[in-house]
């Protein structure tokens, strides 16, 4: 790509302006001019979108502090059936035993009835909820400062953030244009954020490294896609497991049998988000690791109480 050709970022206002500002701020693309071509909005201006903690950090780095825009701190994001997927961990471990194992044993042997989600540690997560209209407006303000404009001229170079554009021949795709996303603005923004970061990292301008950069970009996108697809399959499955990938099946079986989240490469979600998603799909471990038996029932009962949200909040 010649360096002075404009690059057009095509997508919904939310996707496109976020992409443009991140590219302009982090990857000046060797002086190329960036312009945004807005397609139909995917969210209403008064909708509220949850930004994950890592996204908030990126926003702060691009000069947009969500707190200043009246964003509210949040502890979790929500799935389609009001599943609550927390950013903080559940309770605290005791003597090297995970809280989940303690909670499972308390459920089984002490008749604990509170859900695991009710033990999410209080305290700042870094995540926040923000109104879409304000967010897009703030992105546009920063865009002006960093030289991104609305689309004014035709250009050959396109970064596509809208999945519905079929006639365009993009130089590359980001966010929702990379994969089929369920209707969740949180997941959608996560996909934009992760793919643009990958793009910034991989967009090498040296001709001889182009192939390598493209391969790496694809690798990262595939990893992101696999992880988000697994989460979507869990949250939107309504109990059906036919959509589960083999990787997800493996994770489900480890969770059900051992009470652990099997680590996988490039996971986009934290173990507590997976646990919450599994539990909301009524996948409950039958065993929680034998370590928990190194604790007495009295220790378990005490610990569960000290981790109960009321107690933590009072401390």
């Amino acid at each position: 790509m010649a360096q002075q050709d404009p690059v057009t970022i095509v997508g919904s206002p939310l996707d496109a302006w976020l992409t443009a500002v991140m590219l302009a701020r982090f990857a000046p693309l060797a002086g190329a001019k960036l312009q945004v071509l807005e397609t139909s909005p995917v969210a209403r201006v008064d909708d509220v979108v949850v930004l994950r903690p890592e996204m908030v950090r990126t926003n702060v780095s691009i000069g947009l502090d969500p707190k200043r825009l009246g964003a509210q701190p949040v502890q979790a994001w929500a799935g389609p059936h009001r599943q609550s997927l927390p950013f903080n961990s559940f309770g605290r471990p005791l003597k090297g035993v995970s809280f989940v194992a303690i909670w499972l044993r308390a459920r089984e042997e002490l008749g604990e009835t509170r859900s695991l989600q009710s033990f999410v540690s209080a305290g700042q997560t870094g995540g926040c909820a923000i109104e879409v209209g304000r967010y897009v407006q703030a992105l546009k303000t920063i865009a002006t400062k960093v030289g991104v404009t609305p689309c004014t001229q035709a250009s050959e170079h396109i970064v596509q953030a809208d999945p519905n554009l079929t006639e365009a021949q993009p130089d590359c795709s980001v966010g929702a244009a990379v994969m089929t996303l369920r209707p969740s603005t949180t997941l959608r923004l996560q996909a934009v954020h992760k793919s643009v970061l990958a793009l910034i990292d991989c967009w090498s301008w040296r001709e001889n490294d182009r192939d390598l950069a493209a391969r790496e970009y694809d690798r990262r996108l595939q990893a992101m896609q696999a992880s988000i697809e697994d989460m979507q399959a869990l949250l939107w499955s309504d109990g059906r497991t036919d959509d589960y990938s083999s990787r997800l099946k493996h994770r489900v079986s480890v969770w059900q049998n051992v009470g652990r989240i099997a680590p996988v490469d490039d996971d986009q979600f934290t173990p507590q988000e997976w646990m919450a998603a599994f539990l909301s799909a009524e996948l409950v471990p039958s065993a929680a690791g034998r370590l928990v038996h190194s604790l007495t029932l009295a220790e378990i009962s005490d610990h569960v109480e000290t981790c109960s949200p009321k107690e933590v909040a009072n401390v």
Partner: peptide, 21 residues
């Protein structure tokens, strides 16, 4: 091993996950 510690039934899932990791 501690995290995936078996009981007498030796569930193959614990073993396979251990071997994988």
């Amino acid at each position: 091993l501690l995290a995936l510690f078996p009981n007498q039934e030796f569930n193959p899932i614990e073993r396979d996950e251990y071997n994988r990791l």
